[in-house]
Design a protein around this nucleic acid. Sequence first.
DNA 1: AAGTGGTCTAGACCACCCT
DNA 2: GGGTGGTCTAGACCACTTA
Lengths: 246, 246
Amino acid sequence: MGTTQLESVPEPKYWHLKTVIGEALDSEFQVGEVLPNERELAARFGVARATLRQALEQLELEGRLQRRRGVGTTVAPPRVGVDVSTARHRWPGVGEDSWQAVDCATAPPPAAVLRLLEDVADRPVYAVRRLRSTQDQALAAEQLYVPAASVPGLVTSESLTGPALARGVLRELERLPLEGQDRAVELGSARADDARELDRLPGAPVLVVTTRYLSGGRTAAVSVATYRADACRLTFGDVGDLRIAS
Amino acid sequence: MGTTQLESVPEPKYWHLKTVIGEALDSEFQVGEVLPNERELAARFGVARATLRQALEQLELEGRLQRRRGVGTTVAPPRVGVDVSTARHRWPGVGEDSWQAVDCATAPPPAAVLRLLEDVADRPVYAVRRLRSTQDQALAAEQLYVPAASVPGLVTSESLTGPALARGVLRELERLPLEGQDRAVELGSARADDARELDRLPGAPVLVVTTRYLSGGRTAAVSVATYRADACRLTFGDVGDLRIAS
DNA sequence: AAGTGGTCTAGACCACCCT
DNA sequence: GGGTGGTCTAGACCACTTA
């Protein structure tokens, strides 16, 4: 990376910086390579550290950089495309997928989820926790809410807890006929617990995917999955899946 | 040993501020109401303005606030759910939709789009510009790239330009049999031109929806649509009529 | 212990919108 | 012209990782 001085331009410094550094990333850096630290970069470009950080923040938001406290700033790999296609008509956890069930509690779901689960009397509601990862990196954390009424065959016991209970709930859920799904994607910021599991700081930008699973005309389960916005590209392929087009 | 690891987690000020203000928004403010200005809020909470701004930035990212230079900070309405369902198997612009074609050029598409349009020899490539709005607010700006080969019946002339040409391209595109779509959603930051049309500043967070339209085994068109991440929730309903009456 | 990114401060000036 | 949010500075200290 050169030691180019910035000329005075009408456009904000951090914006121009972002462009300059972005181009340098393309031409002079390899994926995984460590950048000079922020104080050095700021000095090199002749700006305050806060200004430099504004540029780095944007680049991180766009998935081009990865910053980790105590470690440094590295060039991020291209975003991973993760399939969240709705066309499959499958329950979560069916078939080959990259989710791993890690826990299950019966804590009451948040108000926003309760609005989607129409019948509030369906207590308890199982809260299954799952993680989705690629080889070395956690991509998403999910909270799957399943009313007890959706898994009538579930055998519970004092000794059946944690991951085993989570898997049991998922297994029972598969027995219901899945009639459809409703899905929404929006931008959010990671809650403290999600952030920890995604190896990000609280408030990190995430793509929140909310799914409503329908069975028997009812909402049989609600999933709230938070994907690392810097590391993921959500794909909804319907190609090669040519269902009966109406 | 006496070294008890007390997990005192000093929560950052801006994070706490965000919570406090967020709760105040729920209980004490109406949608559209104007908040006190940043200098006053900072003084009221006893923090530096920069710290307060960190909290406001997060709230804006989550779609709870709207800030406009020279105007002030207002309480944002709930996010608008916009349907970007892929199940429709429709070309862009067919039927009742909220897009408005505004222009058409023949500028060469960016490299990332060229990679999706396999046959690079298909010149020229029409670049149709469209806007999607609700009553009073622009939600998304789209650049739709259509190789000339996809619209063989298009009659061009010197006098056919701008919006009229854009509509002509869309009309011709509808004549092709649509075989499928490939869609991806990721987080991006608004380019200067998109930002202007979305009434945001450059770099504002946007949800970038990239769609590949397939016809005859080829990529017949590529759409890159940028949605205001603060104002939109993208929905992918495949439920259709099953939707609970609302 | 040294080095990194994350938080925070107290100022300053600028660009924009309103009246 | 007066008020707003946006940009920028030059520091300071903190939390975390690594050696």
